[in-house]
Design a protein around this nucleic acid. Structure first.
Lengths: 142, 142
DNA sequence: TTGAGTGCAAAACTTTTGCATGGGG
DNA sequence: CCCCATGCAAAAGTTTTGCACTCAA
């Protein structure tokens, strides 16, 4: 994603465009692993030594409020951020705590149909979270 | 659930039977709301004033390790415990943070079939988490 | 008797908050 | 210029840990 487009995304939702927001957003779009706030901080502080972890938290929260990112909580209770906005599920490795996207149109359609054709006992469902949990198979050498 | 059965469950998995474990397990089986460690603690300390929150955490963890309970993490990053062990999904109210069981055999079968007939890119899936998130509809007075 | 379980307090860890300073529109 | 955003440090909230004591088997 180019920088002009990122600037547009940030300003379009009423947020001021700052250097910190740029690098944080960039880090998110580049990452495949749904990083935590700490991981974003580690990623960017090399080139932005004065940036504060509090700013990272506040900025990620602003982005989530603005709908630019999604937030989930992993098995360890740590917030993880996802720049992919369309309906998709996740794979979670219980060993490495890595989170990866799992994209399967049939599954998403199945789930959407399920929501539309079922009653949820007084709940207005606006989101569904599906996480397949397990262990990444070691690449066996044999 | 009667007390003898609880004792049996606890001892059967190699754990010593103690008063604390009894009351903690009992609190879990009585609760419908997937309580946090703190909530379990609040629930039981009236009748067990000397019990420690650390014991609650350690005990809940032992039960999870032993397979007597399941653990999930809610939207706030707080550990929540579930004494229901068969496959089921959850409803989460974003307002109250209440977690409720959502039991639907068709859905569970659908998911199981999906896991068995799909590839997960090197992941050995042994668990699936489905959470329907939304808001509990207010009971309208009109 | 003896090692697993408990209770207490301190520590660890993640996230939030308050406030003074800085910078974008 | 005016606020919104930032950085720092302190605080808050949850969970873990270390260690001495207790008690179930």
């Amino acid at each position: 994603m180019n920088l002009a487009l990122i600037k547009e995304k940030i300003t379009n939702c009423g947020l001021k465009f700052t250097h910190q927001r740029m690098v944080i957003f960039l880090a998110l779009t580049k990452s495949e692993s749904h990083p935590s706030a700490e991981q974003v901080y580690e990623e960017i502080k090399g080139s932005n030594p004065s940036i504060s972890i509090a700013t990272v938290y506040k900025t990620l929260d602003s982005f989530v409020q603005a709908g630019l990112l999604r937030k989930t909580i992993d098995q360890n209770g740590v917030m993880r951020f996802d720049s992919k906005l369309d309906a998709h599920s996740h794979l979670y490795c219980k060993t490495s705590h890595e989170i990866r996207d799992y994209e399967n149109e049939k599954l998403e359609k199945l789930l959407q149909d399920f929501i539309e054709s079922n009653d949820f006992d007084g709940y207005e469902i606006d989101e569904i979270n599906v996480v397949f949990k397990g262990h990444k198979r070691e690449k066996t050498i044999n």
